[in-house]
Amino acid sequence: MTTPVWPQGYTVKGDSKSFEILDAGKNVVARSGEPLAIGGGGADSFRDTWTERDGAKGALWMVGQIGTG
């Protein structure tokens, strides 16, 4: 399992079956069931200042670029 770590200000609403990803301006940038292309890279560990650390499982993926596929 890999946990995506979204850029600061981004939020994910919903659950693993039905969700929306919102940017810092609360605009929907992706939805479940739609193609999504993300760039980024792995991270070794969570930082104390990051939000929602308790939900992280497995490897971490720092989300960089976000676009629709």
Rank of each mutant, 00 (worst) to 15 (best):
N27F: 02
G67N: 03
V63F: 06
R53K: 11
S32I: 07
F19G: 13
A30H: 11
K17T: 08
G40M: 01
W50E: 06
G67I: 00
V5N: 01
T3C: 01
G39P: 10
L60C: 15
I66M: 03
M62K: 03
L36E: 00
D23P: 04
V12F: 01
R53V: 12
G69L: 07
T51R: 10
G55V: 10
T68I: 12
R47A: 14
E52H: 01
D15F: 01
M62L: 15
Y10I: 14
D48V: 07
G69A: 13
Y10H: 06
D48C: 08
D44N: 15
P4G: 08
P4T: 07
K13G: 06
L36T: 02
L36F: 04
M1P: 12
V12R: 02
R31F: 02
Y10A: 01
G58P: 13
G33R: 03
E34T: 09
K17I: 01
D23M: 05
T68V: 10
D48Q: 13
G69R: 08
A56N: 00
G64M: 09
L60Q: 09
W61L: 15
S45V: 06
D23V: 00
A37T: 13
W61V: 00
G33K: 11
M62E: 05
L22R: 12
N27D: 05
I38A: 12
L36C: 01
K17N: 09
P35V: 02
M1Y: 13
G33I: 08
P4M: 06
M1A: 14
G33C: 04
A37N: 09
V63A: 03
M1R: 08
I66Q: 09
V5L: 02
T49M: 05
V5Y: 00
G69H: 09
K26H: 11
F46V: 15
G69E: 07
R31Q: 10
T2P: 12
K17G: 07
N27S: 10
W61T: 12
P4F: 06
G69K: 13
G9S: 04
D23W: 03
D48M: 15
G39R: 08
D15W: 00
A56L: 02
E52G: 09
V12A: 13
G67W: 00
W6M: 09
R53A: 07
A37F: 10
T3N: 02
G69T: 11
T49Y: 02
